[in-house]
Amino acid sequence: MTMNKDGFKTQIKACDTHSLAEAVAYLHAGRAVALPTETVYGLAADATSSSAVAEIYRAKNRPSFNPLIVHVADQSAAAGIGYFSQKAEKLAQHFWPGPLSMVVPLTDQGKAAMSPAVTAGLETIALRCPAHPVMRAVLEQSALPLAAPSANMSGAISPTEAQHVADSLGGRVALVLDGGACQQGLESTIISVDDDGWRILRPGPITREEISALLGDEEKPDPNADPDTVISPGQLASHYAPSKTLRCNALDPQADEWLIGFGEIEGDDNLSPTSDLAEAAANLYAALHRADASSKARIAIVPIPLTGIGIAINDRLKRAAH
């Protein structure tokens, strides 16, 4: 249990029938709770309540122009909030439940139901149907769409364990449901999709190649897109960052650097001794947390291949080092 100076308590509880019911009760009361997903732990609140969504922004110190992903129980619930083109429906049928978020146009019903703070005033909304059994149980039992960014202070290292949440948000959130270490370890892939085509806004566990193979066409970047406009989470230049300086693509670690290795380069920590990129993704944030807590003044990480999920790993490292 973690308590802040005002006596606000953060409790970590194992996921059982009682704690699930407690989490649902908090959500219906307009409170935010931290829940495990297959990607990272999320700070969830009722996406239809502006006061509940404000708890997320307040707890994380999150900038209000940064929109949130709304988690739903199934594709039917998502279709009541956003417009799904044929491409979007195909993606949902294939990858949901799972680590894929889709930015789609809001329906009139979605505009009326969702808190404007969720979309940051945009005409689109990011939707995801998660695969983690705890998050799915809470979605089904609460019957609420849940806004749920990562459960950590804004811009800091994302949490893949319950204790990471308590270390970052202790005293800012009442309840953390402990579902163990997150399987994927990286935030979901975010894709913008409409009748005209699709483009990846944030790389993640679902790769560009997998999406292209399913849809049978290539990614079509928006020629009118403003690079300074944030239309989905994870687009800020500085994000996922440790408190210490992080140096990427390091082959010459210095004495004051904690080296995160990969493959044959062992280091002080190793994302995957067998050079498995999926294992590296799952271990990335936990390794950054350990490095940040070490006695070394700085952090260095060896090169990670720019293939498959390695593209998403490098995206997080680039923003963490910004």
Results as ranks from 00 to 15, higher is better:
A225M: 11
I309D: 01
E140S: 11
H132G: 10
F8K: 06
H18Y: 10
A47R: 13
I231P: 08
P97L: 04
G263A: 05
G261E: 07
P67H: 00
V72K: 11
S212K: 10
S275Y: 13
G30L: 03
T107I: 15
L259Q: 11
L122H: 08
I304Q: 10
Y41V: 13
I56N: 11
V138P: 01
T10H: 09
A23T: 04
T189A: 10
G308R: 02
W96T: 02
N66P: 04
A174I: 14
R58K: 06
N4D: 15
Q93H: 00
A21Q: 09
L251S: 10
N314G: 08
L175C: 00
K111W: 03
P223T: 15
L122E: 10
E264F: 13
Y41G: 12
L277Y: 14
L106T: 09
N66K: 03
I125Y: 14
L43M: 02
A300N: 09
R290Y: 10
R247P: 05
A126P: 10
D252W: 00
S101C: 13
L277H: 15
T107L: 15
L277R: 12
T229P: 11
D252M: 07
V302R: 06
G121K: 10
A293N: 00
T229G: 10
L306D: 13
T17C: 04
G30Y: 13
V165N: 07
G80C: 07
P303C: 02
G179R: 06
Y57I: 01
Q86P: 03
V165H: 05
P116A: 08
L169T: 12
Q254H: 05
V104H: 13
V173G: 11
A73C: 04
V193T: 04
P130S: 00
T274W: 08
F65T: 12
P242T: 09
P149H: 14
A59L: 01
L236C: 14
R199C: 01
L175R: 14
D269M: 03
G110T: 00
T10D: 12
I191W: 05
A52D: 14
S115E: 02
A280F: 13
A287G: 12
I190G: 06
S154A: 07
M153K: 10
T207G: 12
S212Q: 15
L284C: 11
A162I: 08
A44W: 00
A241Y: 07
G110N: 09
G170E: 09
V138D: 05
P203Q: 03
D195W: 04
Y26V: 03
T160Y: 06
D228V: 09
A113P: 12
A297L: 07
A23D: 11
R290W: 11
N61G: 08
Y26F: 15
P203N: 13
T229A: 01
V118H: 14
A312H: 09
A137N: 15
W96I: 04
R298G: 03
